[in-house]
Amino acid sequence: MPYIQDHWLGKHALLFALCVNLILIRALILFADRYTLPPYISDRIPALIATVAFILIFHGVVFVWQVVGVLRATQHQSSILANIWTVVTYGVIGLCLAFTALSIAASFRALAPERFMPVNLTELEDARASQYALTLSSDATRIHVTGTFALGMAQRLAALLDQNPEVTGIVLHSDGGHVYEGRGVGFLIRDRGLDTYVFEACSSACTTAFIGGVKRYLGPDGRLGFHQYKVDLDYPVPLYDIKGQQEKEITFYRNQGIAESFLEQVFLAPHTGIWFPEGTELMEAGVVDGVVE
């Protein structure tokens, strides 16, 4: 193609070659390299072949074409800023090279053999279930939820509620866990018309479950903790939108009658910290309906 040949020969304007042919195309390539990895290619050998081919073509041939064309374009500079643009060009090439090397290293880490070990689904479900406990109270009117919100919790809680239709409330004690499970438990509690209680601490994903309650109560020592979400994985998660997930929680909170002034603060604390509002603030915002012993 003439376009490819023109860039290779340095015929494009330096600014265009630098911004479009190098920076933009390299950014698209670095974004696209995840498609040779799980979950898009689940088997290791095909994923390894696809990754090596991708690296040879796009981090090899295409990158050489990008760099050579940009360097040749610098030779046609005649303005008094030519030297400055040359320095800028070498700096951008260095950054692109660094990001490309990091991307290649991350790809091969994601292809480590231990990441493709066969998974026993029964053992996986048991391992997840071991992270939390669902305990029916002695009078069979409440279910105590403790531990981490792991995948499968909402489904197991639904089954326990089906077996015990006299349950009217859920007691929560958790530092959080999986965002989807927190939301799933919150929807389940809301749809079943249950009240929620926190007598100790309920943070992160647990707060979404708590806000699902028709009536929401704190004990004298109960605390609710809020912070931003994070992706706690070692491999790339395609198109995972953390901000979008937080917006879904805000919408759920709003539908549960939480004040707008409170919603503006829910995700201000970074994921490395946590915000524990005072009881009076929770009451005023409609998060909590009362304090009970």
Rank of each mutant, 00 (worst) to 15 (best):
L172V: 02
L263Y: 08
D195H: 13
Q245D: 12
V287T: 03
E181R: 01
L161H: 06
T251V: 13
Y240D: 12
L160V: 09
A209L: 01
R223A: 14
E278W: 04
V214W: 04
E200N: 12
D234K: 14
G257C: 07
I274C: 13
G169R: 07
V287I: 13
H173G: 00
Y240S: 05
G257T: 07
I189M: 07
L194K: 02
D191L: 02
L224Q: 11
Q256S: 12
P238T: 11
Y235E: 10
I170M: 05
Y253L: 07
E166M: 14
D232P: 03
G182D: 02
L218Y: 10
F199R: 05
L224E: 11
S261A: 14
T251W: 11
Y253W: 14
G184S: 08
A259Q: 01
K243E: 15
G273A: 14
A201M: 15
L233I: 14
I242M: 10
G244M: 00
W275T: 06
R216G: 03
S204N: 15
E264S: 03
S203M: 11
T280L: 09
G279M: 06
F187A: 01
F267R: 09
L224K: 07
V291F: 11
Y217L: 00
P270G: 09
V292W: 02
G212R: 00
R223T: 15
L233N: 13
N255E: 15
E281K: 05
V198N: 02
G169C: 01
F226R: 04
I189Y: 04
